[in-house]
Deep mutational scan, measured.
Amino acid sequence: VTLFVALYDYEARTEDDLSFHKGSKFQILNSSEGDWWEARSLTTGETGYIPSNYVAPV
């Protein structure tokens, strides 16, 4: 499992996005959609889309 960590805070703009804070960790579920990845937050357990340029591999 590849884990990613948030580099910045992000406020969701749609109900499909995940809001998160810098330092939040994610499991990436689908990275084939270009700049928006489907991810599960390891902090909240919620699933949604995150901007790929806001995260980096742990």
Rank of each mutant, 00 (worst) to 15 (best):
E46M: 10
N30P: 04
E33T: 12
D16W: 15
Y54L: 12
A12C: 05
T14G: 15
V5T: 05
V1Q: 13
Y54S: 11
E46A: 10
A6K: 01
T2H: 12
G34W: 10
T43Q: 11
I50N: 00
S31V: 11
H21G: 09
Q27P: 00
R40V: 14
T14V: 07
V58M: 12
D9N: 08
G34Y: 09
F26S: 00
E15Y: 09
E11N: 09
T43V: 11
W37M: 06
D9Y: 04
E11T: 13
S19V: 02
T14M: 12
F4T: 03
S32C: 12
R40W: 10
Y8V: 06
P51A: 04
E15P: 13
H21D: 09
V5Y: 11
L29D: 04
R13K: 13
S31G: 09
E38R: 10
E38W: 15
G48R: 01
F4H: 06
K22L: 05
Q27C: 11
G48T: 02
Q27L: 14
K22Q: 08
R40K: 13
D9S: 08
T2D: 11
G45I: 02
K22Y: 05
P51L: 08
Y49Q: 08
L18D: 00
A39M: 05
G23A: 03
G34A: 14
S19H: 08
F4S: 02
A56E: 11
Y8G: 04
N30E: 08
Y8A: 08
G45H: 06
Y49T: 07
D16M: 14
F4A: 07
G48S: 02
P57M: 09
T14D: 11
W37Y: 09
F20P: 00
A12E: 03
H21S: 14
D9W: 03
K22M: 08
S31Y: 13
H21W: 10
D35H: 10
W36T: 06
V55A: 04
G45C: 08
Q27E: 14
V1I: 13
S41A: 09
P51G: 03
E46G: 05
F4N: 00
Y8I: 06
A12W: 02
A12I: 02
S32K: 11
A56C: 10
Y49V: 07
D35N: 09
L42G: 02
G23R: 01
W37I: 06
Y10E: 00
L42M: 11
K22R: 10
K25M: 15
A12R: 08
E15R: 10
S24C: 13
Y8T: 05
E15K: 13
V55M: 09
W36L: 07
W37A: 02
D9G: 05
V5D: 02
H21R: 14
G23N: 05
V55P: 00
E38L: 15
P57I: 09
L42W: 08
T47H: 08
G48N: 01
K25A: 08
T14C: 14
T2K: 12
A6M: 01
E38Q: 12
W37R: 01
F26A: 00
W37H: 03
L3M: 10
F4P: 00
G45R: 03
T44E: 03
I28F: 03
S52D: 02
V55Q: 00
I50L: 07
E33S: 13
F26G: 00
N30Q: 08
L29G: 03
R13L: 11
H21C: 14
G34K: 14
I28G: 00
L18M: 13
T43K: 09
E33D: 15
V58D: 09
A6P: 00
A39P: 01
